[in-house]
């Protein structure tokens, strides 16, 4: 099922797009999901510095993630606001 992928800022420059769709399984381990996303958008450089957020909610890196069609996965590189 296709899921919407949002990339933020530095990830956007590496991936070359800000918004795209990706077909991943509905139930997936965080580590596997990250692996797939990194491979698909050649984000190896920042792999160890990003966190994924599902539907505007930081996801737990040690848990299994449950997804459904239309869910938004955001790639959040190191934050630097303020």
């Amino acid at each position: 099922m296709p899921k919407k992928i949002l990339t933020c800022y530095s990830a956007r420059e590496l991936a070359g797009c800000s918004e795209t769709f990706l077909d991943v399984e509905d139930s997936i381990l965080y580590a596997d999901l990250l692996e797939i996303i990194v491979k698909s958008y050649s984000l190896e450089d920042i792999k160890n510095n990003v966190i994924l957020a599902v539907n505007e909610e930081y996801s737990n890196t040690s848990e299994r993630i449950l997804l459904k069609t239309g869910d938004e996965i955001a790639i959040i590189p190191p934050i630097s606001g303020g």
Binding site: Y9, S10, I51, N60, P78, I79, S80, G81, G82
Partner: peptide, 30 residues
């Protein structure tokens, strides 16, 4: 600074490659 996803990019005069800043507070939580 740690949690709100807002980024800043520093631009310098005569510098063609602006850099994304990282906060020291940032660490990929959980």
């Amino acid at each position: 600074k740690e949690k709100v996803p807002i980024w800043k990019k520093e631009f310098y005069e005569n510098d063609s490659s602006p850099e994304w800043k990282e906060n020291k507070e940032y660490e990929p939580i959980p």
